[in-house]
Each structure stands twice: as C-alpha cells, then as structure tokens.
Design a protein around this nucleic acid. Sequence first.
DNA 1: GTCATTCGGATTGTTGACAGCTTACAGCGG
DNA 2: CCGCTGTAAGCTGTCAACAATCCGAATGAC
Lengths: 233, 233
Amino acid sequence: MTEVIEGLVPITRRTTSSLIVDQLRERIVDGTFPPGGQMAEAQLAATFGISRGPVREALQRLVQEGLLVNIKNRGVFVIELGPADLADVCLSRRLIERKAASLLWKSKDERHLSRLDVAAAELAATTGDSWAEVVERDLAFHESLVESAESPRLSRMFATLVAETRIGLATRPEARRERAALVAEHRALIELLRDGTERRLLAAIDAHLDASLGSARPTAARQGRAGATDSPA
Amino acid sequence: MTEVIEGLVPITRRTTSSLIVDQLRERIVDGTFPPGGQMAEAQLAATFGISRGPVREALQRLVQEGLLVNIKNRGVFVIELGPADLADVCLSRRLIERKAASLLWKSKDERHLSRLDVAAAELAATTGDSWAEVVERDLAFHESLVESAESPRLSRMFATLVAETRIGLATRPEARRERAALVAEHRALIELLRDGTERRLLAAIDAHLDASLGSARPTAARQGRAGATDSPA
DNA sequence: GTCATTCGGATTGTTGACAGCTTACAGCGG
DNA sequence: CCGCTGTAAGCTGTCAACAATCCGAATGAC
C-alpha cells in the first residue's frame, strides 16, 4: 500500500462537459441567456474553444435538469417560466425547506446553525444595490438550510429549484425586495430554529417564501414549451 | 392561416438520445445492467445500431438524473445504492408522497381517485409470482398518487426516486413482500383518502413506505461512489 | 517468491466532416 | 397586391476516425 501524504488532494479533473454545464448554468440563471433564447451549439463551441461534441453533452444534461428544452432539429432553448411554473417552484421549495427546517429544529445541530449564521451575515454584508448579488446570497442561505438535512437527494432537487428561482427573479423586476427585509426574515428564521416553536418556524418559512415568490398567482398556464419533443422526465 | 385537418396528428419524432435514455433507464432499473456495472459505449452503440455520439448524450442525461456515475477516462457506471442511499430515497419519497396524499385528501378529486382505483386494481390483477411485475404495479400506484398533485416538478423528482427504488428492490431479495399485503395497504390508502382523517392517512403512508423500504437502517455509508469525478448536482 | 516496471490492448474523449431538417427569402402566377 | 412555390443558407443530428488515458498481463530485478 502506498503512503497517503497529508494535504495533497488527488487531482480528479472533472469531465469537460461537466465544466461546461456549470458555466452554462451560471449564465442561464444570471440572465445572460434570456428565457426562450436559443443555445447555439456552434457559437458556444467556438466560445469555449472546443468542438461541438462536449457542448452537446452539456446541453443534454441541462435539458435533463429542466433548465433547457430540446426541440428536435431546431435546437435547445432556455425555459420560459410562466406563473404556473413559478407557483410550482414555490410549492416544491416550500415542501423541501419546511422539511429541512423541521429536521434542523429538532436536531439543533450547532454546526449547521452556525453555517446559517454565516450565510445570513453574508447577505447582510452586501453593499450597494446589486439585486443579483442579494438574490445570490439569499438563495445561498436557503441552500445552506437544505444542506442541513444532509440528504443528497433533497439537496440535488433543491439545486434545480434554486436555479429556476434565480431565472424567475432575474427576469421579474417586480419581484425585487428590500435587502433589509430579507436580512430580518433570515435572522428571524435562525432565531426560531434555535429557540422558537416548530409551528411558528414553519409559518415564518411560508411567509418568507410567499413574500419572495408568492406574487405569482397560480393562474392557468402551459406546463411546458409547446412543441417540446424532449421532456426531461 | 392554414387550415388544420382533423384526424391528422403532427409527427413530432423525439430525439434519438431521448429514446435511448428511456430504453437504458428501463434496463437499469430492471437489473439488466447491475449496480456497479459499466455502461460500455461502443457495445451500446453497436447494440442500438447507431454511433457513439447519441449514446454518450443519453448516458450524460442519466448521469444528470443520478442513475449513473461518470468517472473521467474510465466510463459511466450504474449507481450502487447503499443503506444510506435507500434511507435517503425513503425520506425523499415520504416527503413527496405525504404532500401529494394531503393535497388529494383535501381536494378529493374523483378523477385522480378513480385513477388510483385503477392502479390498485392492476396490482391486484397481477398473476403468478413475478416480483418484478408486482414492484412495477406498486410503484405505478405511487406515481399516480404523486401525479394527482399536478406538480410537474414533484412528479419529475419522484420519477427518479421511483427508478432508484426499483434498483434497490431488484437487487434485494429480502425486500420481497406478499402481494396480498401490498394490495391491502393500497386499498386502505384509497379508503383513507376518501373517508379517513388526514392524520391516519399520513400514518398509513409512513407505515406503507416503512414496510417496503424501511428495512434498510440508516447506518453510516458513503454518499456517493468514491472517485466520482462528475457529481450530478 | 514478491515487488516494481513496462508494454500492449481496450476504452474513453475529442474532433472534423457530411447528411437532414427547418426557416427565410426571392420568384412566379393569379 | 396577395399567396404559393422553389431555392439557398444555417443549423442540428449523426457518423467515422484520431488522440489520450487507463487497466492488466508479461517481464525482469531483488
């Protein structure tokens, strides 16, 4: 058996398509690729300085993730989130976050609670009026909350929901909120996680999500891009 | 505007990789590709009579879905579900199914309830002792239940959980249960959905899931294949 | 005999090119 | 002037071949 040297991490280069996925996802959620816009393979390949093969693999993964829609012989397009979609995202997020909060409330694991403290502080530390940065820190807090459930599957599901939330918030100026209000609500959540009742904690989560995403009324809307030939599930 | 002719359906062929994904997923969950086994690209391409390109795209989608794991320069492998994974699947399934049941209990939408009747009857109608078929019908019932929530995202998440459940059940003979017991539990769930209290309904769901998946104790186990260079999230 | 090394086979990662589809536009007829 | 048709351009879907990497067996040293 070969000796393992402390401090040296084995270099496990990730696959190229995986790296592409991360970059594309970031650009999709921050609005660089607008909803409904096409992801041109050749252009992306040229931009990354690689061939179309890995780009196509990355796009397929994002299709499976639900952030892109594939129309045969036309191309892949960024999803357009209608009111019904946002309501669905809200419903799903509430389900997962309530569970995570409930678990953390029961365990009171200080390791996770302090991580939430940090996340909340980082939101409070945002300067200026960069709405995008506020959204990012806000969602980082929520991801930390879900991480505390220590459930890989819930975290993975939630990651997609976060991405969709960012798309929704990036393209809806009316969803902007005061940073101060968000900071206060996060601090209140941590307070309730530590010393509150479960009932009030869950009510606070509902209220927080409603305030952020609840503006979209669940009116009738299509559940996917018409003509999509390639559903992710 | 061109006239639309009645009776003629526009031909919307799905993408090849999408068809491959479905076939591969089916074979993965039914055990044809055993957990830990490698998915050889060239062999699959030859089997399907196509090139390696579409096969690679399909594999990437299944990696994103979480059913396969990609190790750079080694290949993609079927996930191995340890006890911790099964516990996580159980936790996630319980969360989603409880929510769906609660919603259906509130709405009492007869359309969905009758669909559950059908699903339960089809499980009861299974003849012989084909464990695989029992599992399939059982999970079809649960998918119907989740469908009743009319949430595309919950349904999509649940589809992956169902696939993982099938993998887990296909490779664990000790998880076999009497068909009669499953039939009775499903009928009881429908009964409770129609006329029971919400509390008893949720308790019945918990019990049903525990009986099917709860045998796996959440002992310490790795949360992913060691060396995986390409995590789905 | 055991361990380290090297070489070969096999598989994956990537590329460039070709075929098929869709779309937009110019041309033609009514 | 309006509508249909044919053509051309651009894109996606697919393929076969090349390069890079890894695994295992054979070889040699101690």
